[in-house]
């Protein structure tokens, strides 16, 4: 199978663009067009039984002005963002030692340990969320354990059907997503760099903060972006594990508009707002990532 360069430079260029053509076409058809369609829809008016094709800003106005106090949709969005931020931080805090441990403390079978951290993804999302009911419930595993040890006398019911259980479940679900890029980032740190730092008399702690952390940060930020964005759009964990006033997040409100509220334009507007927010998150995180990777010692 020997292929000689039998094409003229022009044809080669053309062929090379052929490489990205399917990708661009696919993204255009199944990402750009649908989202542009969503954007257009968000400016239509919702009439009785059907959408009226008249331009209006009322869907956006409604989002930002309707309701009072915490039940304003925009406040629900902020509440969702708050929960997602907590999820992100917790996932990072849990992932970091695992990634560090596998990279620097495990000598043999690194890959195996790495896979062990990813394997929980193979158990159904729903079932993992469900397990937390058994673990965190009033008569659940955690409460039974606490009462057995005498730490508490009465079961604590705030573990389940509250923001606590929603956060715990999401942290569990999104931790592998944070771990993966973090692990990869650490894996690529040249070992001799760490040695060099130590040889230069930098202590363990200084090496950690001056070399290891900055070099891992891009991975941390990528992973953090995943956790933040994915938990923003998660409507299942809140509805499965949230309590009376904690089960409705922004994605649940969006979902409702495509159901009995039957207000697709408003649902579309909420979709557009989430889209813009996630785009902002990606851009800001990307900036930070670039900022930190410039600081990388030893590069060039």
């Amino acid at each position: 199978m020997k292929i000689k360069s039998k094409y003229s430079p022009g044809t080669r260029k053309f062929l090379q663009y052929g490489l990205i053509l399917p990708l661009v076409l696919w993204l255009f058809m199944f990402l750009i067009v649908p989202y542009v369609n969503l954007l257009i829809n968000s400016f239509w008016k919702n009439g009785a039984f059907k959408v009226e094709h008249t331009f209006t800003l009322e869907n956006y106005i409604k989002f930002f002005t309707s309701g009072t106090g915490t039940n304003r949709p925009v406040m629900v969005l902020l509440d969702t963002l708050r929960i997602s931020a907590i999820v992100m931080v917790c996932s990072i805090l849990i992932s970091f030692p695992i990634a560090y441990f596998i990279n620097f403390k495990v000598k043999k079978n690194k890959q195996l340990f790495y896979m062990l951290a990813i394997i929980p993804l193979w158990v159904s999302y729903i079932m993992r969320a469900y397990s937390w009911r058994i673990i965190l419930g009033t008569n659940g595993i955690l409460n039974s354990f606490f009462m057995w040890t005498g730490l508490t006398k009465e079961p604590i019911d705030a573990f389940l059907y509250s923001d606590v259980s929603v956060i715990i479940a999401m942290v569990h679900i999104y931790t592998p997503f944070v771990l993966m890029p973090m692990y990869t980032a650490m894996e690529q740190i040249p070992r001799n760099l760490l040695e060099a730092s130590k040889d230069l008399g930098c202590g363990r702690i200084r090496t950690f903060f001056k070399v290891l952390l900055p070099l891992t940060l891009p991975g941390v930020l990528t992973g953090g972006t995943y956790a933040l964005a994915l938990s923003m759009g998660d409507f299942l964990a809140p509805s499965l594990l949230g309590g009376a006033s904690t089960s409705t997040k922004i994605a649940n409100i969006a979902q409702l508009q495509f159901g009995t509220s039957n207000n697709w334009p408003y649902g579309a507007a909420i979709g557009v707002i989430i889209f813009v927010l996630i785009l902002l998150i990606i851009l800001v995180m990307g900036r930070l990532e670039k900022h930190f990777s410039k600081l990388e010692p030893g590069k060039e």
Binding site: P34, A251, G267, G271, L279
Partner: peptide, 17 residues
Amino acid sequence: LPMMLPGIITGITILSF
């Protein structure tokens, strides 16, 4: 983006399309 955007929105936009 397709990975980061909420699946429910991606689902509904693709459906409409």
